[in-house]
Design a protein around this nucleic acid. Structure first.
Length: 503
DNA sequence: TCTGGGGTCCTCACCCTC
DNA sequence: TCTGGAGGGTGAGGACCC
């Protein structure tokens, strides 16, 4: 019996960029690129306007700037995206208890399990209603794929993009998939795609013709069997609502390669502390400590050590990471360091007891461990820093966003050597306004920082739902200007108020 | 030209025990 | 006593995903 097309895959269109456009009306219809602004940043999401210039996810930011010099370049604001995602996921959970989030902007839903669809017609109705509900609740468009399996539902939503809905009728799967590129299938990335291409296989139909034995020979058992089944449109993976995390890790890429061994040790200690923080936040302890090092030539190596039992003790993780680092040759330079913990376990009473015993010693050690460095600086960790230029606003405040554009002073994109998150007393600094961040002015109301420098900050006064706003420039220490939280994308009671006239 | 961050899963090698 | 294979644990690396 064929499965009814009641597996739904939801994919928000160009999610981060769309949220920025919704929250900053002057960016609507403009090329918006969200990603790391540092010298080693890559594109996380590009708006559809930017994609027309050839900009796409995972592209180095420098290349994106060459292709689209007039785009608005923004650092991701994950807290805002998470809030919007929560709204969307809540709508999905109204449809079914079986919702499997894949990321902030993607999820599978088993509609049949929720009793909200049982055949093609009811699935289509539910999908359309969902898209309308998401638009009403967030102001954002979403694409929906419906099929009898997760793999096909994902293929369907990909085909439906942007702002569309597609249902794959049971029985039509193989014919639909046959002409598609093998890269359409989940699990076929650049390496496997190239491997298959060299064997003369470029389409899903050719994959199916090759046969299971041949695919197993080419790409290994697990992958080969899975590929063959997917090529036939077969996928019986269930939608899983709760998934246990298997590892927790943190990593930093440095603007400049690190050479100083002392600095490298300090960074590893700092990462170990951050990792333990995340580990504890997730309510876990872990048994295997992993150190990741990416060298100057982009070669990456990992070293790991398995402890006798799980830990969430920062001192233990720091020591293990330090031991692992001793076995790594870092001459030539290090561009990335990471610390992770795998083999996760829930807390035990014994762990908690051991923890409390160690807490005092750990606190002392942490105080000593905080020390400064002299080179490089990790990627931004804060939300809200951005560089939004060159959108060609009517007021002429824009202009091409050159790499040295109006990023906030001291911002992540231009942190000079020696400005890492070192401990110690910092000298008094002037107020910093990260471009892209939300602000409120006592007279002009809410807006966002378009850029700042040489003692001035430029603010565009607009809010979600308002017309594109005007730009004003203030002194960075203007007492009437304050940082503020992001406004909701829809449903803000203040929307509709007149934006103060230029005067 | 330049390649993030946080994950998951798979494969292979090696060692040890039975 | 020696040998070989199976199987588990561990460590390292690669590929992939969003």
């Amino acid at each position: 019996m064929r499965a009814a097309p009641t597996i739904l895959h939801l994919d928000m269109d160009a999610f981060y960029a769309s949220v920025e456009q919704a929250s900053k009306p002057s960016l609507r219809g403009k090329a918006v690129i969200v990603g790391g602004l540092g010298p080693r940043g890559v594109v996380a999401t590009a708006s559809y306007e930017a994609r027309r210039f050839g900009v796409h996810s995972a592209m180095p930011m420098a290349q994106a700037r060459r292709l689209c010099p007039n785009g608005a370049y923004l650092i991701p604001r994950f807290s805002l995206y998470r809030a919007v995602s929560d709204v969307v996921m809540a709508l999905l959970r109204q449809l079914s208890p079986l919702v499997e989030p894949l990321s902030l902007d993607e999820a599978f839903v088993d509609l049949e399990a929720g009793g909200t669809a049982f055949d093609a017609e009811s699935a289509l109705e539910t999908g359309q209603r969902l898209r309308g509900d998401i638009l009403a609740a967030t102001g954002l468009s979403a694409s929906v794929g419906l099929a009898g399996s997760k793999m096909l539902a994902k293929v369907a939503s990909e085909e439906a993009k942007p702002d569309g809905l597609l249902l794959i009728e049971p029985g039509t799967e193989r014919a639909l998939l046959a002409p598609m590129s093998v890269r359409t299938l989940p699990g076929v990335g650049p390496a496997t795609g190239e491997h298959l291409r060299r064997a003369g296989i470029t389409t899903v139909g050719e994959l199916a013709e090759a046969g299971e034995d041949e695919l197993v020979r080419m790409v290994g058992r697990a992958h080969g069997v899975g590929l063959y089944r997917m090529a036939l449109g077969l996928d019986d993976r269930a939608v899983v609502a709760e998934r246990d995390a298997k590892s927790v890790s943190v990593e930093d890429t440095f603007d400049v390669d690190l050479h100083d061994r002392v600095r490298i040790r300090n960074e590893v200690q700092r990462l170990a502390d951050r990792c333990v923080h995340r580990l504890r936040d997730s309510g876990h302890s872990g048994r295997t400590i992993v150190l990741k090092v990416r060298r100057y030539d982009f070669s990456t190596l990992t070293r790991s050590e398995t402890l006798r039992g799980p830990t969430d003790d920062p001192a233990v993780v720091r020591e293990a990471a330090a031991r692992l680092l001793e076995a790594v040759d870092t001459t030539g330079g290090v561009r990335l360091l990471g610390v992770g913990v795998t083999g996760l376990a829930d807390y035990t009473q014994e762990d908690l007891f051991a923890q409390s015993m160690a807490a005092e010693a750990a606190a002392e050690a942490a105080a000593e461990a905080a020390s400064g460095g002299a080179e490089g600086s990790p990627a931004a960790e804060q939300d809200g820093a951005a560089e939004a230029g060159g959108t060609g606003g009517a007021d002429g405040s824009g202009g091409p966003a050159a790499p040295t554009g109006p990023t906030a002073p001291g911002g992540p994109a231009e942190a000079p050597e020696g400005t890492g998150p070192a401990g110690g007393a910092e000298p008094a600094r002037e107020r910093r306004w990260s471009a892209g961040s939300d602000v409120r002015h006592a007279v002009y109301g809410p807006g966002w920082v378009q850029g700042s420098g040489v003692g001035r900050v430029t603010v565009r006064f607009e809010r979600p739902g308002s017309p594109p706003g005007r730009v004003r420039t203030f002194r960075v220490d203007d007492p009437e200007l304050e940082p503020s939280d992001p406004l909701p994308l829809v449903g803000d009671p203040a929307v509709g108020e007149a934006v103060p006239e230029e005067g």
